[in-house]
Write a protein that binds this DNA or RNA. Structure first.
Lengths: 205, 205
DNA sequence: TCTCGACTGGACTTGCCGGTCCAAATTTAT
DNA sequence: ATAAATTTGGACCGGCAAGTCCAGTCGAGA
């Protein structure tokens, strides 16, 4: 089961994954055939099945993993350092800029709407991604609470869940309508809500 | 071009649309073949192409329209009467209950993630749906502003956009992870934000 | 009752796509 | 050097699904 790959082999394998990911981002999972991937990556049928014995399904799972990784790394280093309002704003801007420049090239959508539905394996990858992401946001909320910048009575997990849902929905809406307004609104309203929580409950405990 | 349908004919046509919609909700667009629809609705190939000369694509568009209608009607009458906090809470509960009971049977996901991407026509249907939906929410916000229950300085359009994004993302996350928490969090946080806006800016103008 | 057009049934065609197979080339290890 | 293993090329197969076609049925109006 433990296939041994030479450097050349694993390079080819990686090339296939990245080519497939790009193809899927551009045309969607359903419209992406193995021949498309083959042509794009300059490989042959046998190579695809050599590196992914499980065929199309195994390749899609690998792509899901790859794209899930990109979703988070695209937001770094801002995402893991949400320890000041300035950092929050920068993170917000990173997200917005990312989609303003290249709305089409969206690993998040690829993994959520396209791949996440297909197999239990991909679903697990997606769940793991969401958990990690939400955890990072919640950590940022707690960091601000410790600094007294956010109402300590606020539920960090719930706030993070709501924010994540807003981002998710904003991206989905953007991909359907081409408008960034919902993503911006979701981020701005959520962050504003966090900032103002202190004013509502100034010194609760 | 103007086909004339007898009552029997239009009944068959409607049966096909509803059967296709159900099939798509259960198995997804990609996995739904015309033969599946045929079997489920007890029709023949020629009937499908008789009522939908454009073939699969035209059928999918009709399904998108049908499902888009359901998304809004499922939230009525609460959605169009958001004129008290009690009404807002009831609307929230309608949404949550809807998905708690039948998460799988989700016209919203069908139209957004499954159909909305396929053709420009379906995309237009989806955009129209989102506009209408957001408009209803915004109207509710303004109604509350007029009653002095929400800070009049708050941007109703932005608040509605953020809320819509949250719902959208909450549903998408639910369909991937099976957990309702994000949808609940998005709704609760957003409504709480609206309720507390008055406390932050008690008598601004 | 007759006729015309709407409606229905299902066989058939066509093309595509995932997957298999085998043989050749290339690399690695001894 | 040479054997073993990895990597590569591409022809081929089988099935499936969209779409076509034509023959037959049904129903309403003259």
């Amino acid at each position: 089961m433990t296939r041994e790959l030479t450097p050349k082999g694993s390079a080819t394998r990686q090339r296939i994954i990245e080519g497939a990911a790009a193809e899927i981002r551009e045309h969607g999972v359903a419209a992406t055939t193995l021949d498309d991937v083959r042509t794009r990556t300059g490989t042959s049928k046998s190579q695809l099945f050599h590196y992914f014995p499980g065929g199309r399904e195994e390749l899609l799972l690998a792509v899901a993993r790859y794209e899930a990784g990109r979703v988070l790394s695209d937001q770094q280093p801002q995402l893991s350092r949400l320890t000041s309002w300035r950092a929050w704003e920068e993170w917000r801007d990173v997200l917005i800029q990312r989609y303003r420049r290249q709305a089409w090239d969206c690993p998040l959508d690829a993994v959520v709407s396209q791949l996440g539905r297909s197999t239990p394996g991909a679903q697990a990858v997606l769940t793991e991604l969401l958990n990690r992401w939400q955890g990072e946001i919640a950590a940022g909320v707690r960091a601000m609470q410790e600094q007294g910048e956010i109402d300590p009575g606020l539920d960090a997990g719930q706030a993070a869940a709501a924010l994540l849902a807003g981002i998710q929905g904003g991206v989905v809406i953007m991909l359907s309508t081409g408008r960034l307004t919902h993503l911006e609104a979701a981020l701005d309203v959520a962050i504003q809500h966090l900032r103002e929580s202190r004013d509502r409950h100034p010194a609760d405990h």
